[in-house]
C-alpha cells in the first residue's frame, strides 16, 4: 500500500479524502483534519471582516494543501476573478472551479465551468472543476487542461449518496484524469463504494459538518475511503450471477 500515491497537480498525497471546511466552527477544523487524515482542505473566498480575527487559515494544521473554491461565481468570468483573488491570498495555485446559476439545487453550470477551466489553466492554475457527470463535458474539461474532474454524486448538501452512480462509473472508465467524487456523499459506506468503483478521491463536507460528533465522523470517513481504495486495488472478488449458469453448451460447433 505504500506505493499507492495520489498525484494531483504535481503534488503527491497519501490521503484520498478531501475535506470541506464549510458549515462548522473553525475551532473544530484542526480535530476534523487530524481525524480525517486529510491533506487537502477546501475553502471559500469572501469579503474580509476588518478584525481579521478567527481567520480559518489560522486553524488549519501546517502542511495541509489549501484548495480554494470559486463558490459564489455565476459564470466563468466571476470564477476566474475569484480564482485570481484566491491565488493572491498566497496559498498556492490549486483551485476548485464551482459555478452555479441555480440557487435552489446548487447544480454546477457545465458550459461555464469548461470556459473557466480553460482560462485558469492558461494562467497556471491547477484546476479541479466541479461538474455534473456528463462524459462529453468531462472530455472537454480534460482538453481544457483540468488536473482532475469532480463529478457530483447528488445535489450539494443533500447527503443523498450515489444518485449519479452509473455516470460516475463512465467517467472513471473513460477519462484519463483522477475522478474525485464531490457533493452529496452522506455516509462513509457511500464514500467506500465510490472508492471501490475506482474513484481517485472523495470530497465531503456536509456529512461531517452535520454529524453529532464531527471528529468521529471524520475518522469514519477516512477509514471508509481507505477500505474502498484497498478493495479497488485488491480487485473485487467474483460474484456469481443469480440463477446459476446456463447448462447447455454454446461452443459445441467448434472443430479444433
Amino acid at each position: 500500500m505504500g506505493e499507492d500515491k495520489f498525484i494531483l497537480g504535481g503534488k503527491e498525497f497519501q490521503s484520498r479524502f478531501i475535506l470541506g471546511s464549510g458549515k462548522y466552527n473553525v475551532e473544530l477544523i484542526k480535530a476534523a483534519v487530524e481525524n480525517a487524515g486529510a491533506e487537502i482542505i477546501t475553502l471559500a473566498v469572501r469579503r474580509a471582516n476588518s478584525s481579521g480575527e478567527g481567520n480559518i487559515v489560522d486553524f488549519i494544521p501546517e502542511g495541509v494543501t489549501l484548495l480554494p473554491n470559486t463558490s459564489g461565481a455565476r459564470n466563468a468570468e466571476e470564477a476566474v476573478r475569484i480564482a485570481r483573488l484566491s491565488r493572491e491570498l498566497g496559498c498556492g495555485n490549486f483551485v476548485k472551479v464551482e459555478i452555479m446559476r441555480d440557487s435552489k439545487y446548487l447544480l454546477p453550470d457545465n458550459q461555464e465551468t469548461v470556459k473557466a477551466t480553460g482560462q485558469l489553466t492558461k494562467e497556471g492554475f491547477v484546476v479541479l472543476p466541479y461538474m455534473y457527470p456528463d462524459l462529453n463535458v468531462a472530455r472537454d474539461l480534460a482538453d481544457a487542461g483540468a488536473a482532475a474532474v469532480m463529478p457530483l454524486a447528488a445535489p450539494i448538501g443533500s447527503n443523498k449518496g450515489l444518485a449519479t452512480r452509473e455516470f460516475i462509473q463512465i467517467l472513471i472508465d473513460e477519462i484519463d484524469l483522477p475522478i474525485i467524487v464531490d457533493a452529496g456523499i452522506g455516509r462513509p459506506s457511500q464514500a467506500c463504494e465510490v472508492m471501490e468503483m475506482g474513484a481517485a478521491a472523495v470530497m465531503a463536507n456536509t456529512a461531517i459538518a452535520t454529524a453529532g460528533n464531527i471528529p468521529l465522523m471524520a475518522s469514519a470517513f477516512r477509514r471508509a475511503i481507505e477500505a474502498g481504495r484497498e478493495a479497488y486495488l485488491a480487485g473485487l472478488g467474483r460474484v456469481r450471477e443469480s440463477g446459476g449458469e446456463a447448462s447447455s453448451p454454446v461452443t459445441g460447433f467448434l472443430r479444433d
Binding site: R46, I56, N69
Partner: peptide
C-alpha cells in the same frame, strides 16, 4: 476596494 479572505467552504 474589495478586500477578501478565506472562509470555510466546501
Amino acid at each position: 476596494l474589495e478586500v477578501v479572505s478565506f472562509v470555510g467552504g466546501g
